[in-house]
Amino acid sequence: MSDSPTTTSALKNPLALSAPPPLTEHPTAVYLSGLAPGSRPAMRQALDTIARVLTNGSCDAMTLDWTALRYKHTALVRTILMEKYAPATANKMLCAMRRVLKEALRLELIDAKDFARAVDIKSVQVCSELQGRALASKEIADLMQVCFDDPTPGGFRDAALIAILRGSGLRRREVVNLNLNDFDKSTGAMKVWGGKGGKNRTVYLPDAAISVVQDWLGIRGEESGSLLCHVNKAGCVVLRRLTPQAVLFILQKRGEQAGVGHFSAHDFRRTFISELLDSGVDISTVQRLAGHASPDLTARYDRRGEQTLRRAVQTLSIPGFRTKTERDSKN
């Protein structure tokens, strides 16, 4: 009788599972099941990559025996990821590895001391230069104008999309997941279901953005379904949900029409956070609106620039300060 693939893999590599455990006792399966659906594919891919690195391609995330990992293995993973990937990507993958090992500990599949040593690896140092940018008011105005100049349903939808991104700071996936009944026309409240980390929250649109969204709804109609949906080549509204990739295409198209330099959907989020902080809104409130896990993460989105820093210090006084003229007059 021939060996099963799992048995053969185990003979070739000591880090391979000898037999597949039940999914309820598999640390990878348990970890992935706790993630938001949108996050699972990326994290599964990261774990597959780590498994291949450790076994020379013979295992994936489900066939690797994570409970056999020790410090020598995780340190090797860190070194290889650091060489092959950008720091932020490498750290995201290392985080996934740590989380799987944490589930192994919770399932009592790995000794606490072995776990502590295995996860005792430093994150890859990230360059201090901030990624992304804040959009200037004129750039946003130009983007809105090219949408307003387009009398087709696509113009109304794209204006609503930009108004929501600019006025709420939602992530792409959160925007496309909005349904008609998640939007309150009277207050501008929008219910965000299953945001990052599976968290739900309520955000609010400014009055100007509410008006733009209502104009789109006058074209879309009141039938239940996705708030933002497809418009076909004939200019007809199709109640089919947009994808995050479609949002990128729309923004790229409108950016080229408006002559706005390269930007991403996430730059609207950076702009939203930066402007709220600049207007004096406390960071705890901004954190809640952005759906961040901590104020520290919110602070990383601050793109207010040097002018804000300069304005801030102008509020300070120097006790006993006198100008040169005043000092000369005293002598």
Rank of each mutant, 00 (worst) to 15 (best):
R78S: 10
L161D: 00
E25A: 15
D215K: 09
G291D: 03
E25I: 06
C147D: 04
A159R: 08
A246H: 09
T6L: 14
S4Y: 05
P319N: 06
I318P: 02
L35F: 05
N13K: 01
L17K: 07
L81G: 03
F183H: 02
I210Y: 00
T74I: 08
G225E: 00
R288M: 09
R220K: 08
V213M: 01
V176I: 11
V313I: 15
A312R: 08
L277F: 04
L180I: 04
V192G: 00
M62I: 11
S137L: 14
V175A: 05
I250E: 06
V313G: 07
T243E: 10
R157T: 02
I110M: 14
L135N: 00
F272R: 00
D282H: 11
S279I: 07
K330G: 07
V30N: 02
W216D: 01
G169I: 03
K92Y: 11
G195V: 03
N200Q: 08
V260N: 05
E139V: 11
K330Y: 09
T271L: 06
L248T: 15
I121L: 08
Y31R: 04
L32N: 01
T7K: 12
A96R: 00
T308R: 14
S329V: 11
L161S: 02
T55S: 15
S18K: 12
L105P: 11
V176G: 01
F148V: 14
L11D: 11
A16C: 06
L107V: 11
L251C: 12
L242W: 01
H26C: 11
V286D: 00
N56W: 08
L130F: 09
E306D: 12
S137H: 13
Y204C: 06
S58Q: 12
E222I: 03
A51S: 14
G132E: 05
D267N: 09
